[in-house]
Nucleic acid binder design. Structure first.
Lengths: 153, 153
DNA sequence: TTGAATGCAAAGTGTTTGCACGTGC
DNA sequence: GCACGTGCAAACACTTTGCATTCAA
């Protein structure tokens, strides 16, 4: 029986670590635990959260290394910096598959969403104001099931 | 001859200051210069930029007052906090008319855009994952005319 | 008059950086 | 071996806060 990700019609994407190895990225233990800490779907950690996860596996790691590494990964395009409401940066390792985000206004829970290829990059000429558009970022806001339940009161 | 904003079919919106007076907001000189500093279309200032503009008119104003006031205006819903890439908050006084943003990836120039009422709040049920959606935020990224010109190289 | 707003300075987050030391390739 | 990564601590950028003073209503 095929795995869920295969059933959805795609090829299972490489892990972040695999992608970095393939690039010939110089692989230290610090970089490995960072890459492992932030991999997965629906994962959008802050630098501090990456640090917590990484240092539970490698206690001598420093915050500076986490910050440096996250910046480098972002520059390489292997993770994406996302805002999602707060001013604290979050990092999204899902760069292979174009997607958007859905965020709970109450608790901040965030999920990746994959709309059916609709979002066109078009804008009426008057509004476009001679900008050359390259991408559009979409965030859906609402209440997650748990918060919606408790919000009835 | 009607003004441009009238020709576009809308009623000219009240200024931020007018809206605050109507609310019976306690009006100090500091609050007045802050409201005047950040009003207008396509205006998305940082707190520091508001402070600069305000203190050029009222040199004794303090940053703390600017920050306190911006937070209060945001809580009242009279300005919106927007992120737009950087980790520094920006403040948008255009709360009357629902709109989105278009940002230059190179220089950060930001314009309000008003799409033709398309953005539906729908998402396939599978993707919606039982979230109760309330709004969608859209940011168009690209190059402004000036940066597009210089980017040919 | 009085509760609310202000200014100052200190403290609190989140992030970057200079430099000596350590290490993967 | 050496270029590059790491750790530390200090610096930096942005924002919030405690408290005494001032002021709009």
């Amino acid at each position: 029986m095929p795995s869920k990700s295969l059933r959805r019609g795609g090829v299972k994407p490489m892990s972040l670590l695999q992608r970095l190895k393939r690039r010939g990225w110089r692989l230290t233990s610090q970089r490995r635990v960072i890459a492992e800490a932030m991999d997965g779907e629906h994962v959008h950690l802050t630098a501090e959260e990456v640090y917590e996860r990484a240092s539970s596996r490698l206690p001598e790691i420093s915050r500076a290394t986490v910050y440096n590494t996250l910046n480098e990964l972002a520059k390489l395009g292997e993770v994406a910096e996302v805002s999602l409401g707060s001013t604290t940066k979050r990092y999204d390792p899902q760069t292979a598959r174009r997607h958007q985000h859905m965020v709970c206004e109450r608790c901040g829970a965030t999920r990746d969403v994959h709309p059916a290829g609709e979002e066109r990059l078009s804008l009426p000429a008057v509004e476009r104001n001679r900008f050359k558009l390259s991408r559009v970022e979409v965030v859906f806001w609402g209440l997650c099931p748990d918060c919606a339940k408790n919000a009835v009161a």
